[in-house]
């Protein structure tokens, strides 16, 4: 990668801080979280609220399951040349009671992962354009006892 400026691959879906968070929404009436953010209608069938607040989701969670991509996905995925396989994790966020998918950071393979393992959210390049480096959220394993210290 070059020294081009960093930009979010998908604008507004996460903060750009060194300890980044996904940006979701929460229904002010029933408390349901949404990611991607949802601010028009609440999908809880018992709630007809149209009032939402923007929230930063927990940046740590535990692996619900994991896999990898050994073959290059089709567009709109932009692959490195040559294609480098990467791991993928589905991560359970305790407070939000939801599971969020994402790639696992470069250099960590499926052999390094376990169901239940604590992970944290970081930003890493997804691909490069003429103008900037597009970054997105990825999951990085934490030491077994680190979730509490890392905080939600």
């Amino acid at each position: 990668m070059s020294d081009k400026p960093l930009a979010a691959a998908i604008e507004g879906w996460h903060t750009m801080a060194s300890k980044p968070h996904l940006i979701g929404s929460q229904c002010t009436h029933c408390g349901t979280y949404f990611f991607p953010s949802q601010a028009q209608y609440c999908r809880n069938p018992a709630c007809d609220s149209t009032d939402f607040r923007e929230v930063e989701l927990s940046r740590t969670g535990h692996i619900w399951s994991y896999t990898n991509a050994c073959y290059q996905p089709p567009a709109p995925f932009v692959a490195a040349d040559p294609f480098e396989p990467y791991a993928i994790a589905a991560v359970q966020l305790e407070r939000e009671e939801m599971v969020v998918l994402g790639q696992v950071v470069t250099g960590v393979g499926v052999e390094d992962l376990k169901v239940g393992m604590p992970v944290e959210l970081v930003l890493e390049p997804l691909h490069e354009t003429d103008d900037d480096i597009k970054v997105t959220w990825k999951w990085r394993p934490l030491p077994a006892d680190a979730t509490a210290q890392a905080g939600a």
Binding site: Y33, E97, M98, V99
Partner: peptide, 8 residues
């Protein structure tokens, strides 16, 4: 890319 939230 995410499930529903069961937080309510």
């Amino acid at each position: 890319i995410a499930t529903d939230s069961a937080a309510a």
